[in-house]
């Protein structure tokens, strides 16, 4: 935790009594609470959870520790022991990405994307492998997008040496953005396409990275807005209706987008459209997506001749078999 944040917290009086509610229903309300209390997004989200759930900080942190524990296992397991999915469509991709370009000395991951992003991509794909093999994961916000947040937070933690408490801050920050997307739009692919799943995960993660790297709440919202904007319109088109292809590589792009948008925001780049309006835009784009592109497994990748062939029972919707 940065010194700036620690001081801000002392002055904010957040540790003492506060009769003011920490609940919020929009990005602008959340931003207002951050400003009034000199608090990070994660702190406001923690207080909100304690207030609305009538629970102690310790109880929230115990549950977050359990989430992190599951995430840790899921990002690492397939690197040591790759498993095929139920259908056999995926399995072993995380290991390949992680080990590609590894030097003989076993140091680092010399690759196109650099060490941090390569590791994050490998981790995100690992979670989708665990998920597809009926392993234990944390939906974040959904099972199909469950690799993005742990992929980024845990890889950066290893590289930057972040504490468990700091990792929890990352989850709380991401949780705040995800809650707003869930409340004011949707995170269901069946309702609004992959932009609502991987797009949401990417926005949550971009915001979390910014806070963990020492950025301001304002920068967090910028990163989230940029991330939503970049993946706006992304369709949900799972081959054979399974959470495997293209979901796994979409998680990789969700991570890459989160890294990119966090870096833009931390550099002071802004998106002219405010976060709340981007949430609304995502919802409206989702509504205008045809049914074929909303998890029905009839369009996009799933609707191609190859996609239909890979679907065991053939494709009922497009007339091909």
């Amino acid at each position: 935790m940065s010194g700036v944040r620690a001081e801000a917290r002392k002055d904010s009086g957040m540790t003492g009594e506060n009769d003011m509610s920490m609940d919020f229903t929009s990005g602008s309300e959340l931003y207002q609470l951050c400003r009034e209390h000199g608090a990070a997004i994660s702190e406001v989200m923690l207080k909100r959870e304690m207030e609305l759930g009538s629970v102690s900080e310790q109880s929230v942190r115990e549950r977050l520790a359990r989430s992190l524990q599951i995430m840790e296992a899921a990002v690492h397991e397939p690197l040591g022991q790759p498993r095929r999915s139920l259908s056999g469509l995926i399995g072993g991709e995380a290991w390949k990405v992680y080990n590609a370009g590894k030097t003989a000395e076993g140091r680092g991951i010399a690759s196109l994307c650099g060490e941090a992003l390569t590791r994050a991509i490998a981790y995100s794909m690992a979670v989708l492998e665990v998920n597809a093999a009926m392993g234990l994961i944390v939906a974040a916000p959904t099972a199909g997008s469950s690799g993005v947040l742990p992929g980024a937070v845990l890889s950066l933690s290893e590289i930057c040496g972040w504490s468990e408490t700091k990792q929890m801050d990352g989850l709380l920050n991401a949780g705040a953005i995800g809650y707003l997307l869930m409340r004011n739009a949707t995170v269901a692919g069946a309702e609004a396409g992959c932009q609502a799943e991987v797009g949401a995960a990417s926005a949550m993660t971009a915001s979390a990275i910014v806070e963990l790297m020492g950025g301001t709440p304002e920068m967090c919202f910028q990163a989230a807005s940029l991330a939503i904007s970049n993946l706006l319109g992304l369709v949900c088109d799972p081959i054979a209706g399974l959470v495997e292809v293209p979901c796994q590589s979409r998680n990789a792009i969700g991570v890459a987008n989160a890294f990119t948008c966090a870096q833009l925001a931390l550099s002071g780049i802004t998106h002219p459209v405010p976060f709340d309006e981007m949430v609304d835009a995502m919802q409206r784009v989702g509504r205008s997506l045809p049914w074929e592109l909303r998890e029905s497994a009839k369009g996009g990748n799933a609707g191609t001749p190859t996609g239909c062939r890979l679907s065991a029972g053939g494709c009922a919707g497009c007339g091909r078999s």
């Binding site: 609305l52 989430s67 139920l86 093999a133 994961i137 099972a143 809650y179 869930m182 959470v243 495997e244």
Partner: peptide, 17 residues
């Protein structure tokens, strides 16, 4: 209310919520 654990969760056996 929507809890942080509704967003970062559920903890589940995959593949589909």
């Amino acid at each position: 209310y929507i809890s942080v654990f509704d967003v970062i969760g559920p903890n589940m056996i995959g593949p589909s919520s």
